[in-house]
Amino acid sequence: MVSKAVRFSLVFLVLCGLFYPLATAGLARLIFPRQAEGSLVRAGDGTVIGSDLIGQSFTSPEYFHGRISAVNYNASASGASNLAPSDPALLDRVKADVARWRADNPGQPVPADLLTTSGSGLDPHISPEAADAQIPRVAQATGIDAARLRALVASHTEGRTFGVFGEPRVNVLELNLALRQLLGR
């Protein structure tokens, strides 16, 4: 029985641990080459700007900002804040962030998703409300008309899948790439 146990383990290590993932990788390269490599976004010169799916940090006022991140958008060490709802540290952080938000975006509603950290620390999306609330600031910083920005946000708002699953959202990187185009950069 010991020999069976060892032989069984080796057979399935090769089958499930090597053959299966490598075969999947081969198929992926064939059928979905872009996704297989991480849905990378490249600049005109081919350098990688980031990934469609991975959020990145935006701090300058002319960009739409993503959510705050517990790992500061370090895409090789994902993670959440893991702060309990009752944690004083959470309250302190939110208090400070709300104050900053109100200073940067006067008169705008406080978007709940923007001032909370995501589960991955790499959330590429914000809610349409969070994008809308940033329009006056971005308009002021870039000089682009708020109405055009609103249209831009609307065109980059992804609805629920099949109209049912998930939540409406805006991909911050894609939105900012489009914004750069508007700015002619």
């Binding site: 959510r67 959440a80 804040s81 893991n82 702060l83 709802p85 959470l90 939110v94 709300v98 406080v110 709940a112 998703d113 001032l115 909370t116 950290t117 995501s118 589960g119 991955s120 959330d123 999306h125 914000i126 809610s127 998930g166 939540e167 959202r169």
Partner: peptide
């Protein structure tokens, strides 16, 4: 911060 608790959740 009104509404659902989004701390630790993904927007999508």
């Amino acid at each position: 911060l009104a509404g659902a608790s989004m701390e630790g959740k993904e927007v999508r």
